[in-house]
Design a protein around this nucleic acid. Structure first.
Length: 272
DNA sequence: GATTAGACTCGGCCTA
DNA sequence: TATTGCCGAGTCTAAA
């Protein structure tokens, strides 16, 4: 559940926990996540009341008031395959952490590949961990900030947008989709982009993410019935994962290439 | 030409 | 073989 849209959907799904207190938090697995939890980190959460959950890029920042009256923070990154499950209906060998809350609720952190992590610390941990991150998609200065970085380097627009210090929250799927929506070839050197193109990219990024969040949100409604993963699979992706299919705009075959070790999907006729 | 800082790419982390 | 992400190591490049 990796890119900004999925993280935001996850955040909204977790809001019912606000105001609840952690009875205890436990480790379910000996295996470390990307960052190992410090000894006693989970213990600090016992008796802590959850006051807010914020998102910055793909990071979730949880604000607690500790049992001793001192505020603390928990930072969660879902990596490639991390999920947070409220009152998980099943168990998995990939369940790593569980929080037991007042009023009987439980939250499970499940992560097959373990590229994600959970960290607990003092106030400011979340800010510290996201200090070098670029603007959020709904930041009015997004285009200006991205343009400044685009003019500096020599790399492709795809690589530029994938860089979290340039623009927060974008990943492989939504970068491919936003480039398709604006008709920009993914291998275009970033410094060649016109300001108008970057402004168009900003609009496309917002549109794609808004639709993805809406799709994820609506899929939560019928989640029980669907018994499937919300998000991508219900979202109408125009090019991502569609190599060999016809472009929805012109019918040209959608191509897949590798950039920075990641697959890029695009239409060579629509994107130049 | 040699040095250096910053930009950039790539492999590895994991599992199915 | 593939993969929604990220970071550190190593390489490249522009500038002084």
């Amino acid at each position: 559940m990796p890119e900004l849209a999925e993280v935001e959907v996850t955040r909204r799904q977790l809001l019912p926990l606000l105001g609840l207190t952690v009875a205890c938090a436990e480790k379910l697995s000996d295996k470390n996540l990307r960052l190992p939890l410090g000894k006693g980190d989970l213990g600090r959460l016992s008796g802590a009341r959850l006051d807010a959950i914020d998102r910055r890029g793909k990071y979730l920042i949880w604000h607690f008031l500790g049992a001793d009256g001192v505020p603390l923070e928990m930072v969660v990154h879902l990596g490639m395959s991390g999920k947070t499950l409220l009152d998980a209906a099943d168990a998995s060998p990939h369940d790593h952490l569980r929080w037991h809350w007042s009023q009987g609720a439980t939250l499970t952190y499940r992560d097959v590949r373990r590229f994600g992590f959970v960290a607990v610390g003092d106030v400011g941990l979340g800010t510290e961990m996201t200090a070098t991150m670029g603007p959020e998609p709904w930041d009015e200065t997004w285009a200006a900030q991205v343009a400044a970085k685009a003019k500096k380097g020599s790399r492709s627009v795809k690589a530029l947008l994938m860089d979290q210090s340039v623009a927060a929250g974008l990943g492989n799927i939504y970068v491919c989709e936003a480039l398709f929506a604006t008709g920009i070839h993914p291998e275009t050197p970033a410094y060649k982009l016109k300001n108008k193109q970057i402004e168009a990219l900003h609009e496309a990024v917002q549109g794609v993410l808004e639709r993805a969040i809406a799709a994820g949100g609506s899929s939560i409604q019928d989640f029980k019935a669907a018994h499937g993963s919300p998000g991508y699979f219900q979202l109408e992706l125009k090019v991502y994962g569609r190599a060999g299919e016809g472009c929805p705009a012109c019918g040209e075959e959608i191509r897949a290439i590798k950039q920075q070790g990641r697959t890029t999907f695009f239409c060579a006729r629509c994107q130049r």
